[in-house]
Nucleic acid binder design. Structure first.
Lengths: 112, 112
DNA sequence: CAAAGTACCTTGACAGGCGAGGTATCTTAT
DNA sequence: ATAAGATACCTCGCCTGTCAAGGTACTTTG
């Protein structure tokens, strides 16, 4: 079973920043990575991905530059900025909070 | 810090069904319960709540009936149906999946 | 009687996700 | 040569869920 985008909605930016925190990368690759990390259960649609890039660039969380092409077409690489690191930290914390709250709200009673 | 609704987006129905799985309830009460269970960190807006009720009723997950008023205005109670129980089970499973995937995607590397 | 709490509901705007469509480059097989 | 397929980027417009704002109505309390 795969996961609908709406369940992830609002966390897209966090996912991308978390990826860029590890190393610079470009759209196509980030997409593949996400797909593979999730075991094929989740995949960011391209339109969503580029929307997010634009948003993150506008808010100064990432910067981009055209990089070596390798095999295939030219690539636009993205790099996380100090602002982006800060934002990422916040978003990760928010995710922890979200999890915590959701788990409490979804508790039915099968647990002790 | 409180959690924005957009981070929960897509899980609203699950939250409500999980509440109704415990016992019949009505809008106002469910809202209070959610707010208190989350320690005041999250609260469903009324408009969102009633939108969800409508959706769930249309899909046969819940049924409603006018119940005893108690103190205050008349109340519309909601009751979960067998379909709703089934749906709830699916949504809980989806939440577990979502958590699992998100945790993998957000991993930076500060862990061992 | 007025105010505050309980309780319900609708409308319209907004934002993010995404289907569909488009461009350009490079490799490989025919 | 050329066609196909992978790599790689981007935009437009629709859809759906959230929510601010506004409204109704009843009950209790000061």
């Amino acid at each position: 079973m795969s996961i609908a985008g709406d369940l992830i909605r609002g966390h897209t930016d966090a996912i991308i920043l978390a990826r860029l925190l590890r190393s610079d990368s470009y759209g196509y690759e980030i997409n593949k990575t996400i797909s593979s990390l999730s075991g094929g259960r989740f995949e960011l649609k391209e339109a969503t991905l580029y929307t997010s890039f634009k948003r993150l660039e506008e808010t100064g969380c990432i910067v981009s530059y055209w990089g070596g092409s390798g095999p295939g077409a030219r690539r636009r690489y993205y790099s996380i900025t100090p602002t982006g690191r800060q934002t990422c930290r916040c978003l990760l914390e928010e995710w922890r909070e979200t999890k915590d709250i959701m788990d409490k709200l979804l508790e039915t009673e099968e647990e002790t």
